[in-house]
Computed example of a mutant assay.
Amino acid sequence: MWQEDRHQRIRALLATLERVSTERIMAELGVSRETVRRDLVDLEALGELRRVHGGVTRPADEAPIAERSHTHVKSKNAIARAATALVSSGQTLFIDAGTTTAILAEELAKLANLTIITNSIDVAQKMRATGEKTDTSNEIILLGGSISDRAFATVGGTTVAEILRYRADVALLSPVAIDHRHGATNFDHAETEVARAMVAHSDRVVILADYSKIGQCSRIAFCPINRVDILITNKKGADGPALLSLRKKLPQVILA
């Protein structure tokens, strides 16, 4: 069986099953374990699957945002505090939508004289000044566009076009996953286009990723590893091979 035929069979199995064992693939294709291993490595490099112990799964998706808001909360709080320490008065920041960036907004709201450009309605609400506007108040710009059916955020061509009007000092982004080969990746096309535009129009990129996202890969890359200036993650798993591989590629990794 030719390699592309094997790849198509593996794709078909994953389209039907969320997880497929190595033994099942060997039986379906009638090939050796080593041949299957090579095929899986190739398909993972393309972002079409994720290798796990004993087999493969579909590329990482995110749980519904209401569910994610209750997971890894302590880890996300620590990351948000570490990210806030990097921010300086007078800066313009891009912030995308996610549970980690929503927590980040609560920390940033304690600062002054920032310009926040975001597609996240949660971030905009949490950053909005509660008192009278002063010369040092933060300016909050909520990007227009269509409301996403996955998150409380704007997406689409209008959102991306608005991003292209601005230039930010820093983009603070929270992906679905990050690894040393594919960089930062997302599952949803519309959310990915927003993040990609923010990367392209920022001087620096800071990725906020709790320990569960390290070494993982979702289906669409939006920020190559050589474009990430700082990764902020958790101390948990600091000695793991996935984070060690990222450390070799990145200028700075902050453990919160």
Rank of each mutant, 00 (worst) to 15 (best):
T57K: 14
L111M: 15
A82S: 13
A102P: 00
L46Q: 15
S75T: 06
R33E: 05
I116A: 00
V41L: 11
T159R: 08
L164G: 01
K74E: 10
F152M: 15
T57D: 01
S88V: 12
T136K: 15
E28F: 06
I103M: 13
A60N: 05
E48Q: 15
N77P: 01
L40A: 02
V31Y: 00
T101P: 04
A60P: 05
S32G: 14
A124S: 15
R81M: 02
K74F: 03
S146M: 12
S75E: 13
E132V: 11
D122P: 04
T118K: 12
A80I: 01
I147D: 01
T71A: 11
V52D: 03
G90V: 11
T115W: 04
E28P: 05
T115F: 06
S146V: 13
I147R: 14
T99H: 07
A161C: 02
D61L: 03
S32F: 12
D135C: 08
I117E: 03
R33A: 02
R37T: 04
N138H: 10
A27V: 11
A80V: 01
T22Q: 07
M26D: 00
L86E: 05
G156P: 12
L108Y: 10
L49K: 13
S32Y: 12
A102Y: 04
D39L: 11
R24Y: 07
N119L: 02
S148H: 00
A112M: 07
F94L: 09
T134S: 10
T136R: 15
E44W: 01
L29G: 13
V52P: 04
K74C: 00
V155Q: 09
R58T: 02
K74H: 11
E162T: 11
R150V: 05
I116R: 14
R24N: 01
K74V: 01
S146K: 13
A129P: 03
R37S: 00
S32C: 08
V160S: 07
R165C: 05
E62T: 07
A105P: 04
S120P: 03
R68L: 07
E34N: 11
S69D: 08
S21C: 06
D122N: 14
T115H: 09
D39C: 08
E28Y: 09
S89V: 00
T154L: 08
R68F: 00
N113M: 12
I25F: 00
L164H: 14
A105F: 00
R81G: 01
